[in-house]
């Protein structure tokens, strides 16, 4: 279990990092490494050049502008989990991050790493979709590019990030009046979700006025489900829509029918919570 040979660079500036990604076809950015390094150890991942992002200045910043909360791609899970601004402006992330792995992994793993890996069972991609976040990418050739989170996750371990791009940050709209809900079912503490659900809801006059949701672990990638959101808002049986809408993943321990069952379970719990709170 040792990686195949690779070349390694730790650029000190963003421009240098982007140049490397532009020049080297087989360059792979290394953020927290909590998934990439084991994949390399198993020789499932075999990057020719590792571009270590950990020396890039400022990429781990967490800051609020009047409109958005910005979380740098290199912000560690533990930092996001503990940050006052996150608690105030995007508490959904704190709820979800409590379920992410274990302390030592959270100390090293990064927001950007998790988003760009796009593991179907990962919590943070679903949160970004539910938060209606915008992901800001950069490349040497094209400069900055903004992609809505709902358009970023393209499938199993697939995203809209191009090989020469780096994710710089997530921008989460500051949304007073919205409240979060996150739950997941995992076999053990910190395991990837068999199914999880991230929900943001806004209430007005004692009823749900707006709602965004996204599952993790259920399908190949998190996505918005407008029909389901509308049904929740209108108080119809939203869970009954899921069998017709979802294409659940299946595995030996968690067959597709089970994931669908869990998705319905979570949606009912979330709906109940949203209406009760409203």
């Amino acid at each position: 279990m040792t990686p195949a040979r690779f070349a390694y660079a730790r650029p000190a500036t963003l421009d240098a990092a982007l140049d490397m990604l532009a020049r080297e076809e087989e360059a792979t950015p290394l953020a927290g490494g909590q998934s990439l390094v084991p994949m390399m150890a198993m020789r499932v991942a075999r990057p020719a050049l590792l571009v270590d992002l950990n020396a890039l200045p400022g990429l781990d910043a967490i800051e609020a502008t009047p409109g958005v909360l910005r979380i740098g791609a290199l912000a560690r899970h533990a930092a996001v989990l503990d940050h006052e601004l996150v608690a105030a402006e995007a508490p959904l992330l704190a709820l979800a991050l409590r379920e992410v792995a274990h302390p030592a992994i959270r100390n090293r793993g990064t927001l950007g790493g998790s988003l760009c890996l796009a593991d179907p069972a990962a919590e943070l991609p679903a949160c970004m979709v539910a938060l209606d976040a915008t992901l800001v990418l950069a490349s040497a050739a094209r400069g900055e590019r903004r992609v809505a989170a709902r358009d970023f996750f393209a499938g199993l371990y697939a995203t809209a990030r191009r090989a020469d791009e780096l994710l710089l940050r997530a921008e989460i709209p500051r949304a007073p009046g919205w409240s979060p809900w996150f739950e997941e079912v995992a076999r053990r503490r910190g395991d990837y979700a068999i199914a999880g659900l991230a929900v943001m809801a806004r209430r007005e006059a004692g009823r749900i006025a707006a709602l965004r949701l996204a599952f993790c672990g259920v399908e190949a990638a998190p996505r918005r489900l407008p029909e389901v959101e509308a049904a929740v808002i209108e108080g119809r049986d939203a869970a009954a829509l899921l069998p017709g809408l979802l294409a659940p993943l299946g595995s030996a321990e968690a067959p597709a029918a089970y994931r669908l069952h869990l998705a319905q379970l979570l949606l009912r719990r979330a709906t109940e919570h949203a209406h009760a709170a409203a």
């Binding site: 390694y8 730790r10 490494g33 909590q34 390094v37 084991p38 150890a41 590792l50 270590d52 950990n54 560690r76 533990a78 302390p103 030592a104 992994i105 100390n107 090293r108």
Partner: peptide, 18 residues
């Protein structure tokens, strides 16, 4: 586990070069 810049991390998931 080792402590890297004050935080406990998995020593098998950090490259020595880092």
């Amino acid at each position: 586990h080792v402590r890297l810049d004050g935080a406990v991390v998995r020593g098998c998931l950090v490259l020595a070069a880092q």
